[in-house]
Design a protein around this nucleic acid. Sequence first.
DNA 1: ACCCAGAATG
DNA 2: TTCACACCCTCCA
DNA 3: GAGGGTGTGTCTCATTCTGGGTCT
Length: 597
Amino acid sequence: MGSQSESNFGNDALSGSSASKAASKVDSKAESSTTFDPSGVELPPKYYLDNFRFVLDHVRALYEDILTAQESAFADDFNALSEDAQCLYVRLLSRRGDWFRTDKLNYSEISDINAAADELAAEEFLEIFDSGAEAVQQDAAALGLFTRPEVASCLSGKGVRSLSKAALMERVLEYGKEDSSEYEDVDLKKLPPTRVLCVFGELEMETYRLLFFGNLYQDFTEFVLRDLGLYRYEDYQIDTDSRWCHSREQLEQQVLYYELRNEAGDLRDLVTEALLQIAERVPDETDALLRRRTQRFLADIARQIERSGEAERSLSVYERSHRHPARERRLRILVSLNRLQEADQLAATMAERPYSEEEHQFLLNFVPRKMKHNAGLCESLIEKTLAPAQDILTMPAAYRLEHGVEPAVALSLTDAHPEDHVLYCENLLVPGVFGLVFWPLLFDEVPGAFFHPFQIRPADLYDEEFTAVRQTSLEACWAALDSQSSFEKAVWNIYDSKFGIANPFIHWGGLTKEILELALSRVSTEVWRGLFRFLLKDLRNHKAGLPDLIRFPAEGGFELLEVKGPGDTLQKNQKAWFAEFHRLAIPARVIRVKDEP
DNA sequence: ACCCAGAATG
DNA sequence: TTCACACCCTCCA
DNA sequence: GAGGGTGTGTCTCATTCTGGGTCT
Ligand SMILES: [Mn+2]
Ligand SMILES: [Mn+2]
């Protein structure tokens, strides 16, 4: 059981003004003096063409043997185009949709847009329609190119004024299709005169993007942001050994995954049958990179089936997801269905080999409450939930709302003890120092880890074997923690040499020298080692969940404080960290804030 | 005449 | 493909 | 109190342009 004590938030505390030492979170960019000033950076007029060519070349260099003949021809044919045509094609391809009207195109760096379009049409990179009417006849979506007034001009009927654009389009398309003279008032020729382009090659481009980035959420803006100096990436070596994809089959599975995601859309809109069919088509035998995505996808699908009230049918989908919280969901379902024998077996497996500390914490909390029939298991989990130490702090609701609950607590603490430092740093500090000390590990150039220039992290960062295949650099990083002086040296060395470079554990804007200095001087290397060991056990789930505040008492040492407002409770990853704090004998408390009546 | 969201831009 | 919190609901001891 | 759902602020690169939708 955790200790409980009460302390009141006195009036004098409110009137105090020694707020200076209570940090407000994230003074953001203010401190990042070495951030580049983008205003001074000029991009060449055809920067986008350079970027596009870079992708084509990079993909060819790394994945040539994986491309189909058609995909290879795509690049060859593109390279054979005139520069104007290349520019126009890239411009159009990088915009939303595949329909465009030429009268709206305005690219000063392209000398003759119409000629470029003609060339692209001749080489089958797009199709030209000479009027809006012809385009709409080909594909109704082309009507969306025209403004609401332009669409309305096709209709001479009454009541047109008050209709939305969508309603107008619906009328035009519905009535326009049937030739019945009943609706002769629809006249697509009233659309303004313009050529209309339909761009081809989006699928090929998607394949190139997928091969280049290894995902589909990054795009050409990465180039721009880097070249403007807004993002900076570590400069790791990329060679042909470092490719992420090694076979056509692997690529096809990735494509299939993204097709399924795309087809599914918002899972909430699907009925159980549709969800099960999607799940059915998700590949099970894949590489580690894709497995993370599919297993999360499967868990999302199963969760949605569960929400639809068909928990029983979600079980088989959960069973295919081998990561937290799939087994938690299964156990909850089995217990609620009273399938206790299966529940017992699953719980025993989880107890023996938990996926993660989160799952373990769930088990400790759940089994004694909901599986009392299994006395044996309850007994063995008697390590018990040892509730974290907890204090209650009472303050006026207005004060909490004015500052936000975490800063309000920080202010009240520094008012009570003006010589203490209280920082609101949440996940800034511990993961941040980890990112500094283990920088050589994170950016160790293992084959397959880095395959394009815009990676914040190695591709396998969250894989089980991440550290196993990096033993040498791992040991070197641990060695830095052998003494206080080597530790500090490592921290400041990386801090100075890598400042501003993207790292999944570091938010440079908030990780100031002042915070680091305090933390390094107050937290022993032994404690840091314990924290980092836990982080390394599960980087994905332990990189967040650290307490809101860290307090540095005037008398020395430190204490971690998680602030909980009324109605808020510890989250899963926070429980996991608190359990670890207890094991490591690290001082940590929950501060529950109550409103003063 | 305004407001606003999304797209485009570098 | 961020993370944490506020606020709502139901269920249940 | 636990759990779930949903929304929100914060992250977001900053700025301009376009168009749809309001209101007056
Ligand atoms: Mn927090
Ligand atoms: Mn908190």
